[in-house]
Amino acid sequence: MAGKINLEIDAVLEKYPEPEESLIAVLQGVQDIYGYISKDAVEYITEKTNIPSSRIMGVASFYAGFRLKPVGKYRIMVCMGTACHVNGSERIGDTVKRQLGIEAGDVTEDGLFSWEEVACLGCCSISPAMMINDTAYGMLTQEKVIEIIDSIKKGEGK
């Protein structure tokens, strides 16, 4: 990627005059565009800012919020918080896994779905809960999960 210009990442970097102090915000900006932090993106940021790629990777790998692999168009986050756990979140995770046929952290072949287990979403009163992109779903049962996933698939013509 050396020498190549990436206008999207440039636009993110422009917002932060001190990219080193704002490294987390920079990486969040990049992740918002691509859905994850790619090796190419890390190298590009290094090239532009002189922040060592080791430091960028150190930060990107430390925080649960950064993904080093691509995500699906629909990113399902199954809450593994305490209240959800007490109300059966493991079974919710198992159901998502069975419905999508992929392990946590992976993407379906059509690129439509990925799923992961996440720390508390703060929706404890409607546990068990999950989020798909920015929308929260609560009071889940295995059947409700199947319904939600099916309706997305249907909406996508699958």
Binding site: E20, I24, A25, Q28, V59, F62, Y63, A64, G65, F66
Partner: peptide
């Protein structure tokens, strides 16, 4: 406003400060 990136340890003051400065928390 700065958005956290998902690390429970950042509830600890000094870890939070490290994170605010763009470091591992």
């Amino acid at each position: 406003i700065m958005m956290g990136a998902g690390a429970f340890v950042c509830g600890e003051e000094t870890a939070l400060l490290a994170s605010l400065s763009g470091n591992r928390g």
